[in-house]
Design a protein around this nucleic acid. Structure first.
Lengths: 217, 217
DNA sequence: ACTAAATCTTAAGCTTTTCTTAACTGGTTT
DNA sequence: AAACCAGTTAAGAAAAGCTTAAGATTTAGT
């Protein structure tokens, strides 16, 4: 049976969700904050995430951006179309507003589970390989230590290696809200990654797509 | 760009859906009954179906049961959880109730399209092909780098390849401030695109319609 | 809880790419 | 012919990217 992660800080709803999943026969883990969620997500593999948006410590949106290989159903009190559009664009697969109907939730959970292909994304590109410890990169035989942010950026680029990754997608991986100055920060991270790569390979790997974003090359 | 099938018997909503898809740059077919839908589905391949439930001739539920390889978003006036659960269990991937929000619909459409991978349908005209990376054009085998603006202009022309695109439509794609001097700028962009095209083909591709705008030819 | 180390962000200066402006040419319409 | 529109070119402005270094923040170890 599927393994589900509940991320919800409201105690009542949290309990309701647990109840629903338990009755339906799912196994699940459950946390009350975004940061706890990230800790678990780094360690374990889930088939689905039920995610609140307004969370302490780390917003739901940030989590959506950082998760790429697990389907997410957002369950939020935010009912405005722009909130929905935002979450769905960032990578959520579905969006339910509170209060939700138990049976509808279960049906939507089953949609996600039946659609999720057993795809274990390979985190390698050419002679680069990301270890799943969130900080190590191999170039051929050489180990390179990355920071958490550098790892997240490179992971995102490698998973979408066929496509151009827009800057704002990458920005979601890093900053905490301030959408202005962050672009600069992203540039620095990219620069630092390139510097580390340059030590071991003449290859450039990360190509800038002017005005749009970046892409593995 | 994705190819979508609209199945909706209510004339008003049908038109609204067409409008939304057209503006978003999708290609689509559209029918007013379940039986028509099945005819098209047997002949053609679609990336997504927007489906009403209460249809003449053949119910939406029937269609859901018969379709297995194309994602379906139900758009229905039926708001009860049991109807939703039913449609989702039968095989629909999402369920929106009328009246729906245009942006939310688009976001949910994009969720379905991004999850059903090979969505790399590139725009093409004759031997021109725009890759969906926002900057690359293929003429036959030859790669040409376009700028963001050049790409936007050419994309617009190719999407509306049957029609004359007025200059002011194209102007909207570039800067939004000075509505005067921009016409000059557009001319330069067109000129630059033509120059790049000329390197690889004798064809002119972009035809000027005197006093009105441009058109692929 | 304190300190040191690691990491992230901000700022600045410099480079590259893209966009706009302007000037000139030539064709079209009335 | 005059007014208007289209096409090309070149130059400078504007925007985006790169790198470095310093200050701020976070993390980890004691």
């Amino acid at each position: 049976m599927a393994n589900i992660l509940i991320v919800e800080d409201d105690l009542d709803i949290h309990n309701v969700l647990e109840e629903i999943l338990k009755k339906a026969g799912f196994t699940y883990s459950h946390v009350y904050s975004g940061s706890e969620a990230m800790l678990l997500l780094e360690k374990n593999k889930y088939d689905l995430i039920l995610l609140d948006l307004m969370l302490p410590a780390l917003s739901g949106e940030k989590i959506i951006s950082q998760v790429s290989d697990t389907p997410i159903i957002v369950i939020s009190a935010k009912i405005s179309p722009s909130d929905k559009v935002n979450a769905l664009s960032l990578g959520a697969n579905d969006y339910l507003t509170k209060p939700f109907n138990k049976d509808e939730l279960l049906a939507r959970i089953n949609v996600q589970l039946r659609n999720s292909k057993p795809l274990n994304k390979d985190l390698s590109y050419k002679d680069l390989k990301l270890l799943n410890d969130n900080r190590t990169l191999l170039i051929g035989e050489n180990k390179i230590n990355l920071t958490k942010t550098e790892y997240a950026i490179l992971k995102h680029l490698i998973i979408n290696q066929k496509e151009v990754v827009p800057k704002n997608k990458l920005l979601d991986l890093i900053s905490n809200d301030t959408l202005d100055g962050d672009e600069n920060s992203l540039k620095v991270h990219i620069s630092n990654i390139r510097k580390k790569l340059k030590k071991y390979s003449k290859n450039n790997y990360i190509e800038s797509i002017w005005g749009i974003g970046f892409k593995m090359s």
